[in-house]
C-alpha cells in the first residue's frame, strides 16, 4: 500500500472540513442566510480529498454545481468561500458567482460550474495548454454520473485520448441526477466501462473509501504526468441529501438511503484510522474540534463582510470595457 499515514491524516482532515462546511451550509441555507442554490457534497467526502492528495498546488481541477468539496480539497479558502455563499463583495467572486461559480485561479481551481457537462471540455483545454506549454501539470475533471449522458463527456474523453492529454476524469457516481436514478438514466452499471469506447483506461472504485480512491488516483495522476494520457475513475458513492437544499428527495427509497448511510465515509474512515493505528480517538476529536472552529470563523468572517456596491456589477464583463451603469 502506497498511502502514508501522513497522507491519510491529511485526507481525513479535509474530509472533516468538507463535512463541517456542508453541514453549516445546510443550516445557513435553511435559515435564509444563503441565497440561490446549495448543492451539497455530504456523503461524497471521501472522493475529492483523496484525489487532491495526489495533486500539486499547480495542478488544475474543474468542478461542478456540487463544487464545495472539490474546492476545499484543493485548498480553497473557507472564509472566502463562505463570504461568496453569503453574496458578499469580499467573497471569492465579489458576490457575483455564488455557490455554483466559486473559482480560484491561484490554486488551479478552474471553477465550479452551473452547466452539467461543461467541465469535461474545459479540462481538455487545460490539458492541451499543459501539453503545449510543456509542463508536467495535471488536470482533474470532477463530474457526476448524470453528466456522462451529455455529448460533452464523450467528446472530451475522445479528444483527451487521441491527444494523450494529462487529465484524470473523476466520476462521482452518486447514483442520481436530480430525481433520475442511475438505472433509469443509463443502461450500464459501471460508468468506468465508457472509457473503453475511447481507449481510456477505466476503473471503478468504492467512492466512500478514501484509500481506494487515493490508490486509483495516484496511479492515474502518475500516468497523466508521464504523458501517457487520461484515465477515467468512477467513484461509487451516494448523495445523502436531496439534489439541492429544499428537495425532499421522496424519490429515494428509504432502504437505499439507510444502506448508504451505514456506509457513511466519515465514521467508516475514522474506524479505519483507529484500527490501523493511524490516529487515536483523541487525535480524531482534535481534528474535528479544529475544523469546527475554522467553520465558525468562516461564518463570522462572512457575516462581517460588506455587500457589493451596486456599480460593481458593471465591471469584469471584459478585461477592458465596463458595462454602462444605471442612473437610478
Amino acid at each position: 500500500m502506497s498511502i502514508s499515514k501522513e497522507q491519510m491524516r491529511d485526507i481525513y482532515t479535509r474530509m472533516c472540513r468538507i463535512r463541517a462546511f456542508e453541514t453549516a451550509a445546510k443550516d445557513l441555507f435553511a435559515e435564509g442566510k444563503i441565497y440561490g442554490f446549495a448543492h451539497l457534497y455530504l456523503g461524497e467526502e471521501a472522493i475529492a480529498p483523496a484525489v487532491c492528495e495526489c495533486l500539486r498546488d499547480d495542478d488544475f481541477i474543474t468542478s461542478t454545481h456540487r463544487g464545495h468539496g472539490h474546492i476545499i480539497a484543493k485548498d480553497g479558502d473557507l472564509n472566502l468561500m463562505m463570504a461568496e455563499l453569503f453574496g458578499r463583495y469580499t467573497g471569492y467572486c465579489k458576490g457575483k458567482g455564488g455557490s455554483m461559480h466559486i473559482a480560484d485561479r491561484t490554486k488551479g481551481i478552474l471553477g465550479a460550474n452551473g452547466i452539467v457537462g461543461a467541465g469535461h471540455c474545459i479540462s481538455c483545454g487545460a490539458g492541451l495548454s499543459i501539453k503545449i506549454r510543456g509542463t508536467d501539470q495535471v488536470c482533474v475533471c470532477f463530474f457526476g454520473d448524470g453528466s456522462t449522458n451529455q455529448g460533452t463527456f464523450h467528446e472530451s474523453l475522445n479528444m483527451a485520448s487521441i491527444w494523450k492529454l494529462p487529465i484524470v476524469f473523476v466520476c462521482e457516481n452518486n447514483h442520481y441526477g436530480i430525481s433520475m436514478s442511475q438505472d433509469r438514466h443509463q443502461a450500464i452499471k459501471d460508468i468506468a466501462d465508457r472509457g473503453a469506447a475511447y481507449n481510456v483506461p477505466g476503473v471503478a472504485v468504492d467512492g466512500n473509501d478514501p484509500v481506494a480512491v487515493f490508490e486509483a488516483a495516484e496511479e492515474a495522476v502518475a500516468r497523466a504526468r508521464a504523458g501517457k494520457g487520461p484515465t477515467l475513475i468512477e467513484c461509487k458513492t451516494y448523495r445523502q441529501r436531496g439534489h439541492f437544499e429544499g428537495d425532499p428527495a421522496t424519490y429515494k427509497p428509504k432502504e437505499e438511503q439507510a444502506a448508504w448511510m451505514a456506509k457513511d465515509p466519515m465514521p467508516r474512515f475514522e474506524k479505519y484510522l483507529e484500527e490501523n493505528g493511524v490516529m487515536t480517538a483523541e487525535e480524531i476529536k482534535a481534528v474535528k474540534d479544529g475544523v469546527a472552529k475554522q467553520i465558525e470563523e468562516a461564518i463570522a468572517f462572512a457575516d462581517a463582510q460588506p455587500y457589493a456596491p451596486e456599480e460593481s456589477a458593471v465591471v469584469d464583463v471584459y478585461s477592458d470595457i465596463n458595462a454602462e451603469v444605471r442612473e437610478r
Binding site: Y307, A323, E324
Partner: peptide, 16 residues
C-alpha cells in the same frame, strides 16, 4: 437589464 451576466448577490441582481 444591464449588459452584464446575471450577478448572484441579491442587491446586485436587483440592480441588474
Amino acid at each position: 437589464s444591464l449588459d452584464t451576466p446575471v450577478p448572484f448577490a441579491p442587491n446586485l441582481e436587483q440592480y441588474y
